[in-house]
Design a protein around this nucleic acid. Structure first.
Ligand SMILES: [Mn+2]
Ligand SMILES: [Mn+2]
Ligand SMILES: [Zn+2]
Ligand SMILES: [Zn+2]
Lengths: 141, 141
DNA sequence: AATGCAGTTGAAAATCACTTGCAATTAGTT
DNA sequence: AACTAATTGCAAGTGATTTTCAACTGCATT
């Protein structure tokens, strides 16, 4: 059993049930998103989706990502310096380490850090809505 | 002895020694930065500096912030959704909690979280260049 | 299967936060 | 005071993303 393999990702049904119409452009974009195992940006999604359906436009990619985000299907990340990058929202929460030389993104989780954040927010009198932890590093050699 | 009071902040000397010319526009901007106890963005710095010297322009604010950043005098933060915000670089490292309702920024430090990040990077075979930890929260009521 | 229409589309223009080109100005050395 | 490279404001340019708008199309309803 592969832990990395994400399940169904039936974004089409999810959106349909949210009253969103499934156009052929959206079908192409949704397929790309469902199959993505990385953190592509809008232009990358546009390029991949264009191969499936040449009628997809960049504004529609942005609109679809926003719709998916509003419906909790995907998460948006804005790593330093670059455009927004997207990933499935149904994966377990994790944070990211970005290789500043290659730009590659490595995921990690730390229950301890998560707990410490809750303690800090608690002490300050806050409830955490969400947080962002990004480590920028260079591969050790 | 107030711990919050930051010291000298002689950005003028710092820049002068870096071979940067001190114009009257820069003097105004540097005074604003030196006196700032918050995390103002470029427009806010422009507004404050304009009150001291009406000849300050927004491009010069941006250029000066970039120069200060390149000389390690200030740090730039890009909190979710907003423009870059700046703060002194000579303060001890800390992370931020942003009140999503008011936009106010609260600073905090967690030696434990810092240590855990080093452990994580270590395990992944990376040296940390820098990191970003932002907690977005709502005041508990 | 045809109709109706609100939701959706692509293309072009707009926006936002910066950044840059350039001619005029000026800080700081000589 | 003269010199000259750094700096300035303004206008134009960028890059990512959003919006406008007229044409098109899902899809619920006949
Ligand atoms: Mn991820
Ligand atoms: Mn701070
Ligand atoms: Zn986390
Ligand atoms: Zn930190």
């Amino acid at each position: 059993m592969s832990k990395a393999t994400a399940l169904h990702h039936d974004y089409e049904t999810l959106l349909r049930e949210a009253g969103v119409r499934i156009t052929k452009q959206r079908q192409a974009i949704l397929k790309i998103i469902a199959d993505a195992a990385d953190h592509p940006d809008a232009m990358e999604i546009y390029n991949r989706a264009s191969a499936l359906d040449a009628s997809v436009s960049l504004p529609t990619v942005y609109r679809t990502m926003k719709t998916l985000e509003e419906n909790g299907a995907i998460r948006r990340h804005t790593f330093e310096g670059g455009p927004s990058r997207f990933e499935h929202a149904d994966s377990e929460h994790h944070d990211h380490l970005i290789d500043v030389d290659t730009g590659s993104v490595i995921e990690f989780t730390s229950p301890k850090i998560e707990a410490l954040q809750r303690e800090i927010a608690e002490e300050l009198g806050y409830d955490i809505i969400h947080h962002r932890l990004e480590i920028y590093g260079k591969r050790r050699r």
